[in-house]
């Protein structure tokens, strides 16, 4: 095992982890604030990837196509998320957990078929932007420059979220809502608006992540199913509602996967499930969570 392989594998794991972070951070935030586990999160991520394809396809004559397509796709997905929240999710806040879970699971099926109807069954390919097409040489090892872009976006979103939650008034309200909805509501802050805002924000990040995923490989049906369970695992390992926890566990899961693929290709995913099961058994509130919610 030479060092260059380790380095390139580590970078690929980190980029995979950051992609998971972008999905899991919204999932964790939505669960933390609204107590709703959104099964459809990764499906909306996939909608982002397809939307990015469409915008890129329309603009591909221009060099900047992808840089316009990514934010547009993220905004579109956020809009879809807003509609879903207002039309569906809002109605089940007061319901039991299984019903909420079932509703978002039904959304996975509905959106999955709508994607199929809209974009067809063929895989979609998005050309990488010219400036990220060639590998970057780090310490003599060629590293996929698009990986570095994904990692950079992941950290940028992490810091933006951290700044929002720690430094802004609205962030403080959101954090307060994680601890006690009743108290926040009693202070005269309209909880439904906070909920809608958090949901749309989480979905926006998922849409952004999906759009960025587009040029990584081909965009295919069913990608969401594979990633949603891993995103759940990330959220569980990191602890619901903990942003740093989600970041750390994303990186752990990404790296475990990247290295397990080298030594035990069949067992990479199994290893992640074992890790999740161990965390659930030993520390159900996750590595960074607080036992309060367990």
């Amino acid at each position: 095992m030479d060092l260059s392989l380790l380095l390139s594998q580590a970078m690929s794991g980190l980029s995979r982890g950051m992609m998971l972070f972008l999905i899991a951070s919204g999932l964790s935030l939505i669960f933390g604030v609204m107590n709703i586990l959104n099964f459809a999160h990764a499906t909306l991520w996939l909608v982002g990837a397809y939307a990015c394809y469409t915008f890129w396809f329309l603009l591909q004559a221009h060099g900047f196509a992808i840089w316009v397509a990514i934010p547009l796709a993220a905004l579109c997905v956020a809009l879809v998320g807003w509609i879903i929240e207002v039309v569906l999710i809002r109605r089940v806040y007061a319901r039991e957990l299984p019903e909420q879970l079932l509703l978002t699971y039904a959304l996975v099926l509905i959106l999955g078929d709508l994607i199929k109807i809209t974009w067809g069954v063929e895989d979609k390919l998005i050309a990488r932007p010219a400036m990220l097409a060639d590998p970057v040489i780090i310490a003599g090892v060629p590293i996929d420059s698009y990986f570095i872009f994904v990692i950079a976006v992941g950290f940028a979103v992490y810091f933006a979220l951290w700044w929002f939650l720690q430094k802004t008034r609205y962030g403080h309200i959101v954090r307060a809502a994680v601890f006690s909805r009743e108290m926040v509501s009693a202070l005269g802050i309209p909880i439904p608006i906070i909920y809608t805002g958090v949901f749309v924000m989480g979905i926006f990040i998922a849409g952004l992540a999906g759009a960025i995923q587009g040029p990584v490989g081909s965009v295919t049906l069913g990608m969401d199913m594979a990633i949603v369970i891993q995103a759940f695992c990330v959220v569980i390992i990191g602890g619901f509602g903990s942003l740093p926890g989600t970041l750390v566990s994303s990186i752990i899961v990404g790296e475990v996967y990247a290295f397990a693929i080298l030594f035990w290709p069949g067992g990479a995913l199994a290893l992640i499930f074992i890790l999740t099961a161990i965390v659930l058994i030993v520390r159900p509130w996750g590595l960074f969570g607080t036992p309060m919610r367990a």
């Binding site: 569906l88 319901r95 019903e99 509703l103 039904a106 959304l107 099926l109 509905i110 999955g112 078929d113």
Partner: peptide, 19 residues
């Protein structure tokens, strides 16, 4: 072929209107 879409809508309706 759109069975998932159908069952998804059925489930949504049951959850919303027929708990």
């Amino acid at each position: 072929e759109y069975w998932p879409l159908t069952i998804g809508i059925v489930i949504t309706l049951v959850v919303l209107f027929m708990p």
